[in-house]
Design a protein around this nucleic acid. Structure first.
Lengths: 208, 208
DNA sequence: CTAAAAATCCCCTTTTTCGTGGAGATCTGA
DNA sequence: TCAGATCTCCACGAAAAAGGGGATTTTTAG
């Protein structure tokens, strides 16, 4: 018998999940929370196998709560749930310890599948192909003005915290050159300064 | 009949995958490449359903190649393969359009499962629970000196490219205060400057 | 209540980055 | 071969951040 705990602030969603899960064999709901604080408190006494966690909660962000639960109750398998299947949300959840991701439009089979998969210790991700093959993911790569090899090299060092001077020493060019590369990247990518340049770079995987 | 293309620079791995896949029903190998350039060239004539892509290639990084293939051949479903099941690699691959992730130690069933799953348009991730429940993921959350609410707020604005001055105006405090928060974060997180602060922050999901 | 933590503010100097505008050298693909 | 991209370098001033101090007021949690 696998015990499930639901954390979501939308009563409708909670009821929906509840009725779907209770119809499935081998599963039962062991608790519900409508916000992060309530969830943490209840988890001190109830210990579910799987926790279905909404990404958007009223008090704390789902990602933060995910991190917290992972730390305090590492045995609980967390499955993120949300309305959208955004790649960025998904990878964020994975980084913070979620074992799965479900969209709210998931079918009963998908929910059962997700729970079974995470119980086996694997990651489960529900995503429909139409979404994945469309623009949003293309935009990321297509809209990117491409940086030159040298620029990427400099960018990498900037991200590591080196100053123009230190980079210049490292790649045997003058400080002016490094500075020019930095400025060109800021212009190319349409950001306002080094801080936002690095943010952009990390978010777009331009940095190792 | 699902056609598979393999990109990996280790002949042993290629042979292994080949023999495993050829024994499975409904699958066949339509091509092999030992590096990124060869892969791109061959893909101009051969059009596989699924591409198994090693993360570590001699010429370009697997992530870059993944992005490139996604852009030029959006119909091909890419499954990343690597020796390790590092969360950071996994989320990087997802961000760049991969539909799945397999460790090289995967069994024949897992490989078949992965291919079937991505063909259905879902993400497939192979990960063993022992790995996921161990330190590395705990380290991320446990080692993090926690930033205060105010610091996170300032951090967010810094990442958006605002200067101390602009942030000060926004949150109605003096520039000195914002500067102090910035310095404290740099010290707390043990980074050298704002650039590396932002890199750290984005990589650890401290920024929305 | 009280100690610790957080948030606020200020000084100073040095270093780094930003903004602007330019310019020669080298590489590379059509 | 020849244009265009890339890489290299520079100057100048203004603005911002780094590094080092120190200090007071709120908030928070036990």
């Amino acid at each position: 018998m696998v015990s499930i705990f639901i954390v979501d602030d939308h009563p409708v969603v909670v009821e929906g999940l509840k009725s779907v899960i209770e119809k499935l064999e081998g599963l039962h709901i062991c608790g519900i929370a409508y916000n992060a604080v309530a969830a943490i408190n209840t988890l001190k006494t109830v210990r579910p196998d799987v926790l279905l966690l909404d990404i958007n909660l009223p008090d704390i962000s789902g990602v933060d709560l995910c991190k917290k639960i992972r730390k305090e109750f590492p045995d609980i398998k967390i499955v993120g749930i949300s309305t959208f299947s955004e790649r960025s949300y998904i990878s964020r959840m994975i980084e913070n310890g979620a074992m799965g991701y479900l969209v709210k439009s998931a079918s009963a089979e998908e929910i059962a599948d997700a729970i079974a998969t995470v119980m086996q210790g694997k990651l489960y991700m529900s995503l429909n192909i139409e979404y994945l093959l469309r623009p949003s993911s293309v935009v990321n790569s297509e809209m990117l003005p491409n940086l030159t090899k040298r620029e990427k090299e400099v960018l990498q060092y900037i991200a590591e915290g080196l100053t123009n001077n230190q980079i210049a020493d490292k790649i045997f060019v003058s400080t002016s050159t490094v500075d020019t590369h930095r400025k060109n990247m800021i212009t190319k990518l349409g950001v306002s300064n080094t801080a936002s340049l690095i943010r952009f770079a990390v978010e777009h995987g331009l940095i190792d």
